[in-house]
Design a protein around this nucleic acid. Structure first.
Lengths: 369, 369
DNA sequence: GATGAAAACGGTAGCGCTACCGTTTCGATA
DNA sequence: TATCGAAACGGTAGCGCTACCGTTTTCATC
């Protein structure tokens, strides 16, 4: 069967085989598959029949090499741990439905150097587009992305100076809005609780500080972590030999944080938690200590995860449009690839304060059904 | 500059340019980059210098075409919504660290037909390996994977008859263990609560039924969903024009499920929830209704998500090794690709019943610190 | 029926890389 | 010094596809 020692083929049918069987030229077979509108229906049918008969599977590497770009869109997220970014992935995935684009995911672990490495790696494939999280890229990464020759969308943050295009929301504004809400509800000693600070958390903290300052309030000692000695309990090695992971968004961690905060500042009457998981832990710690929520203590979270409307009392949070963000990035990319107008370079999706019972200090909300 | 109308190059340096600058043959430059051990240190240095000087970026499509396989591993998961499978992704991602393999993610949405489509799509790239979830593939998908010519690992389930290799755990056994735990704690009217049944949920349900039968207990009416009229409340369209999504794992949904269950069977004294999110909702519904947990009602979840140790009372659950599962799949794949022994074809990672206060009916656990 | 433009199809060559094998160099051994 | 095998390097050709352009066919128009 094999022609001889020179053939490097693995025996799978190629488009030439399809073309031969259909009695057409290879390039015509290619066209019949790629742009069926440009060939006659009869020919299209013959080619399709040949494809089916031979069980032909196109080789994407060859296609990518010849056409100089791959049908892959690279997505860089800082974490796969929490649902924040997996919601984004879901939005991207849904946005990609009906296209032949595939999504390739890289986890930067909140490390700009790792992000830079991944950008370089991804760009080797000449992806159709890139989606990266936030705007804290290294100079090198920025430059690589600028010269990538494909649409680049930054997401989940906002900036006046996007690499190419940015779709997201302002964390500073979000932090400010939720803090203003707490103040409006009558809270005065509002602490900021956070497991660990990244660029976006910093933005939220800034907004929180602005709101406090404008209301003439002082900032209670914010607790962002525990002393080394206490951290061990929350550090786990998933697999023997693996580096231990400290999961800062674990509710149990939040409970410890709140205990520590209350030691340092027993007079606080509200906490703005950097995310809903922390808020959930705080809620339970208050329950355990018999601290009345929302009367004695207001609790606000961030992201509006799916449990916020089901807790007891329900949890005030800031809705961030994560799914929509991923979807919007893909929409812009698709428009861009199709030569259409991808819309403005900076898009603010906004956020929404979801006021619920955990901050309803004066019982203004309607009673539960 | 351009040689003429015949060049289809985009001007980026190729390995030939690198080779020319380093004063070596193209193939040698390739070797210096791919297998540095096989060339002299001096030459390696010269090639590296040329790469740096030209800012050379290798073209992965060309490499894939020439070497007949791509440095991509395809991962098919049924959902990106809940942390169950994103934990797996994290394990895979961590397992891939230090390799030049990239992970490409596809979301099958629990639909075998979609899974089949994605398998076909992924295989077009000749991936280095495939990871698929569960063992409910269509015949066609199974066949395609069998003939893929690359390692295939099924995860998050168990079977005697893997496509190539399966690493996971038995859902039936897990369901059985947790139900036995509930029975051992003295619960007798144990309901099974589930938002929606997929293949793996079915396995859990089977195990639950086995345990009940063996203990001579009858099964209270299990509630797996709500009547159409009530579903609307939990259905949301993320974006205008998008198909609405019914999120069956929302805690708020669980609260409604529990209410309905209590109507149909007021005498139940425990619920085994299909996942922890549901259990969380049940916990809050009990709190709202003043149902004492664990005395009047035992609650068990599934997966042991990160909040189970922080709820009040803490939540009994079944620890499934999701991260480890992803990691183990990659470990087997790496061994296989390296020509080493990838271990047995069927690996049971087991599960662990995490007994906590939500099922500690008789106060046998040590008091909280 | 001649004309011209659009539609349909095809040949050639090249995308950038590496498999395959061949050649050269070098140092150890006899 | 002759011999030989391993290490180091290189030429050729091919991976499977599509861009680019050229040729043929079709069909409406004058």
């Amino acid at each position: 069967m094999s022609k001889g020692r020179k053939s490097r083929s693995d025996g799978r049918p190629t488009i030439a085989d399809v073309a031969a069987r259909a009695g057409v030229g290879a390039i015509t077979a290619s066209r019949a598959l790629r742009t069926p509108d440009l060939v006659s229906p009869a020919l299209r049918a013959r080619v399709d029949a040949a494809v089916a008969a031979l069980n032909y599977v196109p080789n994407l590497s060859a296609r990518a090499l010849a056409s100089k770009n791959a049908d892959v869109i690279g997505v860089l997220v800082p974490s796969l741990t929490h649902s924040t970014f997996t919601d984004v992935l879901r939005g991207i995935d849904d946005g990609l439905a009906g296209t032949n684009l595939q999504m390739q995911v890289g986890n930067t672990r909140y490390d700009p150097a790792e992000e830079e490495r991944l950008v370089g790696l991804f760009l080797r494939q000449k992806p159709a587009a890139m989606i990266v999280s936030g705007c804290a890229q290294t100079d090198t990464a920025r430059q690589m992305l600028t010269q990538a020759g494909c649409p680049v969308v930054q997401i989940m943050d906002l900036s006046d100076n996007p690499i190419d295009r940015i779709i997201g929301f302002s964390h500073a504004r979000a932090g400010r809005l939720i803090t203003e809400h707490l103040i409006a509800q009558g809270y005065r000693r509002i602490a900021f609780l956070s497991g660990w600070m990244n660029t976006r958390s910093q933005g939220r903290l800034m907004g929180y500080r602005q709101a406090l300052a404008e209301a003439g309030l002082s900032e209670p000692p914010s607790v962002h972590s525990l002393p080394e000695s206490a951290l061990a309990e929350f550090t786990e090695a998933a697999t023997p030999g693996e580096r231990p992971i400290l999961d800062f968004a674990r509710p149990a961690f939040a409970r410890a944080l709140l205990r520590r905060t209350l030691q340092q500042a027993p007079d606080i009457d509200a906490v703005f938690c950097n995310n809903d998981n922390l808020a959930l832990g705080v809620l339970f710690e208050c329950a355990a200590q018999g601290i009345a929520v929302p009367r004695r203590m207001g609790i606000a979270g961030f992201n509006d995860l799916d449990f916020t409307d089901a807790t007891e009392p329900s949890l005030t949070s800031v809705l961030t449009h994560r799914y929509r963000n991923g979807m919007a990035a893909v929409t812009a990319i698709r428009a861009s690839l199709a030569g259409e107008d991808p819309g403005p370079r900076v898009v603010d999706l906004g956020v929404e304060v979801m006021a619920r019972r955990s901050t309803d200090r004066h019982g203004l909300l309607a009673p539960p059904d």
